[in-house]
């Protein structure tokens, strides 16, 4: 059981952990994670934000990672979304994309719908789940002192990495996003591939 104290505010912690976002192609899950990343990158074309399709972000990132093995792919998702797609962790463990880094921003609640507790609030441990699913390199980050090492790990290239970032229930940054995924998809592909 994971009973680490939650002291970090996501608005500060997510940018600190990720650092220079241009180092990655980034896929972010719906709700809080999309706001964290949208606010960080201002939806620069290395960014694809989901706005629904809950549970889908992990496999979007996995598909991107296996298709672009020479790029570093970063998935940022919330605990609520990841709980809906635990099987995706098993699939990622089975496929072992070497260039995929995962950050789960764990606030132990569904912030978008009224702060109802998620299973992680009852001690369900997503870091241990990732390990059990074959993701060998994992970290729990609960303080700024642990950030630098975890941030470097996100950039390592020898296997999938999972970082569980425990944060308070404070809301994500305000960010007015582009909801038209067909536009952001096209911008992403143009920047990466030079074609629509």
């Amino acid at each position: 059981m994971n009973t680490a104290p939650r002291l970090l505010d996501r608005s500060r912690a997510v940018p600190l952990l990720i650092g220079k976002h241009e180092d990655f192609l980034i896929v972010a899950g719906l709700a809080g994670a999309a706001k964290d990343i949208g606010n960080l990158t201002k939806e620069s074309p290395n960014t694809f934000l989901l706005g629904g399709a809950m549970g889908g972000a992990a496999m979007v990132a996995a598909g991107l990672a296996i298709t672009q093995p020479d790029k570093r792919v970063l998935l940022v998702t919330g605990d609520g979304e990841l709980l809906m797609a635990l099987g995706s962790l098993a699939t990622i463990g089975a496929v072992q994309p070497k260039n995929l880094a995962i950050v789960c921003v764990d606030n132990e609640c569904y912030g978008e719908t009224g702060d109802q507790p998620t299973h992680t609030s009852f001690g369900i441990d997503l870091k241990a789940t990732a390990e059990a699913c074959g993701i060998k390199t994992t970290r729990l980050v609960t303080s700024e002192a642990e950030m630098a090492e975890a941030s470097a790990l996100l950039r390592q290239s020898n296997g999938p990495v999972f970082v569980l970032l425990k944060v308070t229930g404070a809301p994500p940054p305000q960010y007015s996003r582009n909801w038209q995924a067909s536009e952001t998809k096209t911008a992403f592909r143009k920047a990466l591939l030079g074609k629509r």
């Binding site: 889908g56 496999m59 598909g63 995706s88």
Partner: peptide, 21 residues
């Protein structure tokens, strides 16, 4: 890519297209 559930493959298709394949 073996999946645990079919919906994973739908999301995977989006990621593969983002990557150009």
């Amino acid at each position: 890519v073996p999946l645990t559930t079919e919906q994973e493959g739908v999301a995977l298709a989006a990621g593969v297209h983002l990557g150009g394949s």
